[in-house]
Design a protein around this nucleic acid. Structure first.
Lengths: 135, 135
DNA sequence: GCACTATATAACCATATAGTTATATAGTCA
DNA sequence: TGACTATATAACTATATGGTTATATAGTGC
């Protein structure tokens, strides 16, 4: 048995194991980066958002997101690869659902940060100055 | 006073305001996506990681990250734009520090997710199979 | 079998960006 | 002032990827 210990020091992204650290950290960093990247796309966030109140099939997601079928399908495939959504075929439809509600924790944290630290409110006000004149 | 309410329903990324929702959601989604994108880069994660135990100047970060000065500087500029790090010139040096420890909460959540939902342990074992033979 | 529908994928284009090299900027000290 | 150091930036290349269109695949029902 070569590799037993698996305690992950989250904060530092160091992973204590009986082996070379540098290589693994490099790999771990890329792993984490890819995970963030999966979430770093408006259309994918939109799809995740649409799945918040339960599973939906590709047609529904295509409609809700306003994207094309091919594009939505591509994003769903990627999200499934990262285990952010679960895929289930039923008949000729394919239903997707959020794999884990913790995805929303993530968004919560990020949105919280944005609100607190990136002056989202200011930005929103600016955005609205441009779009809300019709009200 | 045009825009008062600012309650952000984080989970759904809906922002309740007295105005058009679709446009803003679009903007908000892009905002969140960009934030994730800032974190979706191994070198930037490495830099953030290096800053965990306190501020460092560009030379130090260049050394620690193993990148070139120009590249590290570019990433630092981007991180500063997203308020992930704070910049402070002292003499001819420029020191950077983590703007907010919540960045690590984010990593914690992501790493936790990865560990739980993406079989990081399995992957790590595989990675180590390749790199730890020299031990 | 065939027609029909739903989803996935291939091929392609356009854009964004990480990294490099070279240079500019700015602070320090003589 | 000029030499020196630290950092930022400009110009460029190469790569990755989001979106599109067209096509393939697969399930259903006749």
């Amino acid at each position: 048995m070569l590799f037993v210990p698996m305690s992950i020091s989250i904060k530092s992204l160091h992973i204590t194991m009986e082996s070379k650290m540098s290589a693994l950290n490099e790999q771990a960093l890329e792993y984490v980066a890819k995970y963030f990247k999966a979430l770093a796309e408006p259309m994918r966030l939109k799809v995740l958002n649409a799945l918040q109140d339960g599973e939906k099939n590709v047609s529904q997601l295509t409609q809700l997101s306003g994207g094309t079928q091919a594009n939505v399908s591509k994003h769903l495939t990627l999200l499934a690869q990262y285990n952010l959504v679960k895929r289930e075929s039923r008949g000729t439809n394919v239903y997707y659902r959020i794999a884990d509600p913790s995805v929303y924790e993530l968004c919560e944290l990020v949105c919280g940060q944005i609100g607190k630290r990136m002056n989202l409110e200011e930005d929103i006000k600016k955005l609205f100055t441009a779009t809300s004149q019709t009200n």
